[in-house]
Structures are given as structure tokens and as C-alpha cells.
Design a protein around this nucleic acid. Structure first.
Lengths: 170, 170
DNA sequence: ATTAACCAGTTGCAAAATACAAGCAGTTGA
DNA sequence: TCAACTGCTTGTATTTTGCAACTGGTTAAT
């Protein structure tokens, strides 16, 4: 199970886990898109991951401790994938990736809005979001007293998308 | 030159540039190890990159705008690779990667000390470090009035390494 | 002037990872 | 009863990676 590592450098070890073109895409979709089932991840991904690659990445991420796999009690064939604490703590990393990409790469407006909000909110917002993810993925008991960061991010995305579509329809 | 992108998502676009097992290793060695020549990157890398992969990554990173390649005036065959502003702004991302790796993966003590200092210093330290990198890679005029973050990181690494070697020698 | 060490890569080949399309046994809801 | 859906698997073609040897040229010491 324990493969040989190239080195004990923190950056290298992180790359050995996440340094490929799909692992973080899968985590992003579970985290920001709340996609919890295989077919959701397969079909609703903007990037179009192949089913065998998705299966392999889910297996790897479960083995590495980033995802937790369990049966869906409501449907004998469904499987639920959840983030572990290890994956939830990738929020700052993903926020930085989004911020950097937005600064230097040709991002699309509607997909960049979440990255913009995360960057502007800074670490306090990331902490709130991580706490929500813990509720959603680790406990399952939502706290209704706080406005949801997840919903704010999703709403902002929907809004930009709707605005763009309205503009395109004219 | 412009390949088709999988999507306009900032995280996806960042992964299309950096989402492999070597690109960020190369940038890390230039950034934290001040390795500026091909042979330095090839031989002093803890991970042992192959020469053809290194050549390919350097070419790609120059094409993507993360590195700048120029002849070394002191030696007709030497080439100097420098970080561009785009790469310098990866400092927060690399700091988060280091922090996450240190928390969850089996890092070695001497290689983790830099990540620890960067995490504890937080964004203000990152800004100082980025400013030093700009001097080192973009202008070439050091500012002697400030204590160097680069030197602090390097000294901390040397110290831990020396301590470990002394302990091992007993 | 010779020569050994050094320079940034390149070449050829095997192995591994990735991508694409089709298919599977079982489950569910109409 | 049956069409749609469930999480995958299989087979095959293509691309990427890894390893080792090698290249044409430069430099520094003898």
C-alpha cells in the first residue's frame, strides 16, 4: 500500500497525491457543486471526464483518505462520496488556484465568479465555508443561523449565468 | 499555439498549466533553491527528474509564460531560467500546498521547515518573499536594507539538516 | 595544444497512463 | 413489464512518461 515516495518535501508529497489533471477536478465538483454520486460527477462535469478515469480517481482518493465512500440508503445501487477533513482543508489551496487562474488565464465570467468571491472573502470566508462542508460531509446537521457560503457561491454563479444567457438571447 | 481548453473554470485552467507531477517541482527548485541552470535543476533535484522531461517542462513553462529563458553572458553554453511575475505569484499557492502536505502527509523534518516558516509568516511574509523574487528574477538589484526571506528559509533548512546529520553521526 | 570535465539538451525504446466507446448486471419507477 | 438509470468494467488506440545512452560544442586546467 505504501508506495515509495520521490522525496519527503511537502510540495512533492502533495503533488504525488493531487498532481494530475483530474483529482482536483473531482474534488472541486464534490466541494462546490455538491455532486455526490458517480453519474453526477460523470455527466455534469464541464470537462467531460471518462468513466474509467473517474472510477480510478474516486478509488485512489478514497485510498488516500480524501474521500469517503458509502452506500446511499435510499437506493440500493447508489453510492455517496463525501469529503473527509483532509479534503475539506484543501479549500485554501483551491481558493488560491482559482485566484491565480483568474489573474493569468482566460477564464469564463460565470465560472470565475466563485473564485472572485472566495478571493475577496479571504481566509475568514474560507473558514466559514469549511465549517459548512464539515456539516454537509461529516455530520449532516445544517446550522440554519448562518447564511450559507455554499449557497452564496452557487447563487452568484446562477446569476451571472442567467445574465449572460439573457444577453445572448437578445 | 492555443490548444482547446476543457473549460473556462479557473481551477481547471490552472490545472491545465500546472496539473502534472513535474511543473511545480521545477518552479519550486528555481524559487526556493535558486537553481537557474539546466544541470542544476537536473542534478540537485531530490526527486530525480529525467533530462528529457526537464527539457520538455522548461520549454512548456517558457511557452506558457511562467519562465524566462536567456543566455548566461558568463558562459556561452549556459542558459539562465528566471521566474516571471506569473510564476512569482504562485508563492501563496505553493505555501498552501506546503502547509497542507505538512499537515497530512509523511514529510521529512528538514524539508518541512521551509513550509512551516512560510505558513507561520502568513501573507505578509509571502509578500516580502515575492518582492525578493522580483529583485532576483526581474530586476537583479538586491535591497540590502531588508533581511532576506530567501536566506532565512535556506538557513533554517541548513540548520535542521546539520542537526539531523550531527544526531545521526553519534 | 591537448584533454577531461562540463553545457543544454536529443534520441530511441519500453512501460505506464489516458482517452474513447461500448457494454454489464442489477434496481427503480411508471 | 419495461425503459431508464445505477456504479462501474472491458477492450483498444493514443499519448505521456521514464530510462539510458548519446551529441556537438565550450571551458579550464595541464
Amino acid at each position: 500500500m505504501d508506495e515509495a515516495h520521490r522525496s519527503g518535501c511537502p510540495i512533492n508529497l502533495t503533488l504525488e497525491v493531487l498532481g494530475d489533471r483530474w483529482s482536483l477536478i473531482v474534488i472541486r465538483d464534490i466541494m462546490f457543486g455538491n455532486r455526490r454520486h458517480f453519474r453526477e460527477l460523470l455527466q455534469k462535469s464541464d470537462e467531460g471526464i471518462a468513466s474509467n478515469i473517474l472510477a480510478d480517481r474516486l478509488k485512489r482518493l478514497v485510498e488516500k483518505g480524501l474521500l469517503y465512500r458509502e452506500d446511499d440508503p435510499s437506493h440500493k445501487q447508489k453510492t455517496i462520496y463525501s469529503l473527509t477533513e483532509m479534503a475539506i482543508q484543501l479549500v485554501p489551496l483551491l481558493a488560491e488556484m482559482g485566484a491565480w487562474g483568474r489573474r493569468f488565464l482566460p477564464v469564463s465570467e460565470e465560472l470565475a465568479i466563485r473564485a472572485e468571491l472566495l478571493e475577496k472573502g479571504g481566509r475568514p470566508l474560507w473558514e466559514d465555508f469549511m465549517e459548512e462542508l464539515r456539516v454537509l460531509h461529516l455530520h449532516g446537521e445544517p446550522d440554519p443561523s448562518k447564511p450559507s457560503v455554499f449557497e452564496r457561491l452557487t447563487a452568484a454563479y446562477q446569476e451571472v449565468l442567467a445574465r449572460k444567457q439573457a444577453a445572448a438571447a437578445e
